[in-house]
Nucleic acid binder design. Structure first.
Lengths: 200, 200
DNA sequence: TGACGGTGAGACGTCGGGCGTCTTAGTGTC
DNA sequence: GACACTAAGACGCCCGACGTCTCACCGTCA
């Protein structure tokens, strides 16, 4: 299996710290969370936290976002991997991602509690990284059918649409429902397919 | 109707402020709640808050506790008022109070989030006031049957038991269930009744 | 119209506490 | 015994929340 990740694997201690950051930020909110909260919750000392994540708070949050995105796309890729046709790959990826977003309790809590911070991570600040990781994770599967350039363009669009329909659902289509998503995605797929090859 | 209250009635502005304190303390916790949170939430300016509640944070929390206790016992008394026999008065009061405690979402949230502060208000720090208010609220009803001295002693015990069984439920009795509470309270009631009078 | 009480907006100095760094001691491993 | 890793906590810094204050504004009433 191809390892798609943004960096080296985390040690057990690092994971414990990030788990604590996740829990504390969920409970207290980003600004109100304290490093000492993380110390208490994780059982990892202050000095160790600053040695593992030099730079403080922001580095800690950044590392957490990276880890969560890694996990998100690892799971998504595992779901999609067994699909054969381009159509299935795309539908599974979009539907799977949408459902994963909807089922993410931490995401929901953060969106409710601190919409500013969270929306920023799903739009202006976060989208470039999300697309980068979506591309890294899914291009290997899609490129077999479309080639690398078209794959990247398609994934870029799909990622943006998935986020948009998650944040602002439309009565016209439900990207969490395969029966609804498939016909919605089909024309888009044709658009991205090379003119010389039949797509279905 | 007899007005049982710890002070003068609150103005609309004061109530708006305390509502904001309630919501903010529930959302952020007691220590992490900020006066500016209350300003934003209530729409009442900083200057006005300090003029209405001179002394700051602690006065604000204290006023909130007083208001909530006032409301609690006002509702409880309304529930009990129509009872005739001493037995019914006591059972209704205990069962009603227990249920009200169990249904109080804010209380539950605070107990989960900051057990230290909340437990303190239900035990060491708060019990004297609770008993004082329970006495003021219920003595007029009970005294017809037991006289003032016995009434106060009975209410004191009942308040303590209600709190204890709420905080630490027993498999032996459910004070939120009338059928279970009545036989549990009956012997205690006999104990407090004057020897010269028949109690049932 | 002018006086006046109530309020919003915000500046101000103070002070606590959270921040990030550092040192020390303890523990386990080779 | 050398070394890596960590917990515990002291340290100074500095931001931000606190409580106070002033001023302007608005509605009411004489």
């Amino acid at each position: 299996m191809t390892e798609v990740s943004s960096g080296r694997a985390l040690t057990g201690v690092e994971d414990r710290v990030l788990d604590a950051v996740l829990e504390c930020s969920q409970r207290w909110g980003y600004e109100r969370m304290t490093i000492d909260d993380v110390v208490d919750r994780s059982g990892v000392s202050r000095a160790t936290i600053y040695r593992l994540f030099p730079g403080g708070r922001e580095v800690l949050f950044e590392a957490l976002r990276v880890r969560e995105l890694d996990r998100f796309f690892a799971e998504l890729r595992a779901e999609v991997e067994s699909a054969d046709t381009l159509d299935d790959i795309v539908v599974r990826a979009v539907v799977g991602a949408t459902r994963a977003l909807r089922d993410d309790e931490h995401l929901a809590a953060m969106l409710a509690a601190e919409p500013g911070e969270m929306l920023s991570q799903l739009t202006v600040d976060g989208v470039p990284r999300i697309i980068r990781m979506a591309t890294a994770s899914l291009t290997p599967l899609v490129a077999n059918h479309l080639g690398p350039a078209r794959s990247r363009a398609l994934i870029d669009v799909l990622a943006r649409l998935t986020i948009s329909y998650f944040l602002a659902p439309s009565p016209l289509v439900d990207l969490g429902d395969e029966a609804s998503a498939r016909p919605f995605l089909a024309p888009m797929l044709r658009e991205f397919s090379p003119p010389s090859t039949a797509t279905n």
